Simulated scan of single mutants.
Amino acid sequence: MAVPFRRESEETDRLPALSDGVIAIAITLLVLDITVPAIPEGVPVSSLPNHVFEQWHEFLGFVLSFLVIGMYWILHRRIFVHFEKHDRGVLWLNLLFLLMVAFVPFATSMFTTYPNQFGVMVYSGVLALTGFTLFVLWLYASWKNLVEEGLASRTVRIQSARFLSSPLVFVLSIVVAVFDFELAILTWLLLIPVNALLQSRLVRSVEESLQDSESGAR
Score class of each variant (00 low, 15 high):
residue 2 A to S: 12
residue 3 V to N: 13
residue 7 R to D: 08
residue 8 E to I: 15
residue 8 E to G: 07
residue 13 D to I: 04
residue 16 P to K: 03
residue 16 P to T: 07
residue 17 A to E: 02
residue 19 S to F: 05
residue 20 D to K: 04
residue 21 G to D: 05
residue 21 G to E: 02
residue 22 V to S: 07
residue 22 V to D: 02
residue 24 A to Y: 03
residue 24 A to H: 05
residue 28 T to Y: 02
residue 29 L to D: 06
residue 30 L to I: 01
residue 31 V to K: 01
residue 33 D to T: 12
residue 33 D to E: 12
residue 33 D to W: 01
residue 35 T to S: 11
residue 36 V to S: 01
residue 39 I to Y: 09
residue 40 P to S: 05
residue 40 P to Q: 09
residue 41 E to S: 14
residue 46 S to I: 03
residue 47 S to V: 11
residue 51 H to S: 09
residue 51 H to R: 14
residue 51 H to G: 08
residue 53 F to R: 15
residue 58 E to Y: 10
residue 60 L to K: 07
residue 62 F to H: 02
residue 63 V to D: 15
residue 68 V to S: 08
residue 70 G to V: 07
residue 72 Y to C: 08
residue 78 R to N: 15
residue 80 F to Y: 10
residue 80 F to N: 06
residue 80 F to T: 08
residue 81 V to R: 15
residue 82 H to G: 11
residue 82 H to E: 12
residue 83 F to I: 06
residue 83 F to Y: 14
residue 83 F to T: 09
residue 84 E to P: 08
residue 85 K to G: 07
residue 86 H to C: 00
residue 88 R to T: 15
residue 91 L to P: 08
residue 94 N to R: 00
residue 95 L to F: 14
residue 95 L to I: 03
residue 97 F to M: 05
residue 97 F to I: 03
residue 98 L to E: 06
residue 99 L to E: 05
residue 100 M to I: 09
residue 100 M to C: 14
residue 100 M to S: 13
residue 101 V to A: 15
residue 102 A to W: 12
residue 103 F to W: 11
residue 105 P to R: 00
residue 105 P to Q: 01
residue 106 F to K: 00
residue 107 A to S: 10
residue 110 M to Y: 12
residue 115 P to M: 01
residue 115 P to E: 02
residue 117 Q to Y: 07
residue 121 M to G: 04
residue 128 A to P: 12
residue 130 T to R: 05
residue 131 G to F: 03
residue 136 V to C: 04
residue 140 Y to N: 08
residue 144 K to H: 10
residue 144 K to Q: 01
residue 150 G to W: 00
residue 150 G to C: 03
residue 152 A to Q: 14
residue 154 R to V: 12
residue 155 T to S: 11
residue 160 S to A: 13
residue 161 A to Y: 14
residue 162 R to W: 07
residue 164 L to C: 04
residue 168 L to N: 02
residue 169 V to I: 13
residue 172 L to S: 11
residue 174 I to G: 07
residue 176 V to P: 04
residue 178 V to A: 11
residue 179 F to K: 06
residue 179 F to Y: 14
residue 183 L to Y: 12
residue 185 I to T: 09
residue 190 L to S: 06
residue 190 L to K: 02
residue 192 I to E: 03
residue 196 A to N: 09
residue 201 R to L: 15
residue 202 L to A: 10
residue 204 R to T: 15
residue 206 V to A: 10
residue 207 E to H: 13
residue 210 L to V: 11
residue 212 D to Y: 03
residue 214 E to H: 00
residue 214 E to L: 02
residue 218 R to S: 13
